[in-house]
């Protein structure tokens, strides 16, 4: 049986797809058979971030509608044999994702995979609720910024009430906070909410803090999940987050600004 992880946020542009790609790649690299699914029907982007956009033939909606089988639609990652991508449809409508259809596809994937990562669209509409409905775990991606934190809190309410686990009165979804685009220097200057501020408000288990990093745009330009960039702070931070998800106890790096020497503070730079 696979563990189903939804990557969610409510607000758009906070780094859900970047995170879905990174976590899926990280789990696969550590030896788990992993599938990552794009739930953003009509605005598919996971394939671009994963760098497999030219290999899309069939998509998630084709599988739901029995127009293709799973093996035809799954795209095997060229860098990691354990990783498969199920792209969203670019032409259909969100309503193509039916609860039964999504459940059937996830059931079938569960037979052959250890982890299924669901990349949720922004918002709280149909596509987002479908992405979270069957989840066992949720990673709430949040920027240290007022609207993102508020939307994340709203998402937590929905996770607690509108999921399969909630409806069946089962153990609730495990929720994790992933703080992204974190700028430790601005936090030190009092210009940005700190990790502690966000945790005080959301009180969630902290999966990781991903620093604001040029590596993220570079990685998406190239279609390479940023976790593969082991030279970059963001790549290393995602690597740590995967370790923590798997139960490792790792200290949080990149949450403190680099200390500047007296002279560089005096003369700028």
């Amino acid at each position: 049986m696979a563990r189903i992880i939804v990557i969610t946020s409510g607000k758009g542009g906070v780094g859900k797809t970047t995170t879905a790609a990174a976590l899926a790649m990280g789990l696969a690299q550590r030896g788990s058979r992993t599938a990552v699914i794009d739930f953003d029907v009509g605005l598919r982007n996971l394939d671009l971030i994963m760098g497999c956009e030219r290999r899309v033939v069939y998509d998630f909606v084709n599988v739901i509608n029995h127009e293709a089988n799973l093996n035809q639609a799954l795209i095997r990652d060229k860098r990691c044999d354990n990783l498969y991508v199920l792209p969203a449809s670019q032409t259909r409508d969100k309503d193509a994702l039916t609860k039964e259809g999504v459940g059937r596809v996830l059931d079938e994937l569960s037979q052959g995979f250890d982890f299924i990562v669901c990349d949720s669209p922004a918002g709280i509409e149909h596509g987002a609720t479908m992405a979270m409905y069957y989840a066992d775990d949720a990673v709430v991606v949040t920027n240290p910024e007022v609207s993102s934190v508020r939307d994340s809190d709203r998402m937590l309410g929905i996770l607690a009430s509108k999921s399969r686990r909630a409806e069946a009165n089962e153990e609730p979804i495990r929720e994790f906070l992933l703080l992204t685009r974190y700028d430790a220097a601005r936090v030190d200057n009092g210009e940005m909410l700190s990790v502690k501020d966000v945790q005080d408000i959301l009180s969630l288990n902290l999966l990781g803090v991903i620093p604001e990093s040029k590596a993220v745009l570079n990685a998406s330009n190239a279609g390479v999940p940023v976790i593969l960039d082991r030279e970059s702070d963001a790549g290393l931070a995602y690597g740590d987050a995967v370790g923590r998800y798997l139960g490792e106890d790792l200290p949080h790096r990149f949450v403190n600004a680099e200390k500047k020497g007296f002279f560089s503070r005096l003369f700028g730079g």
Binding site: V146, V149, R150, N189, E191, L193, D197, D200, I201
Partner: peptide, 11 residues
């Protein structure tokens, strides 16, 4: 300094 405190209180 900083507006982060304001953000936290409002939130």
């Amino acid at each position: 300094k900083g507006s982060a405190n304001m953000a936290k209180e409002r939130l």
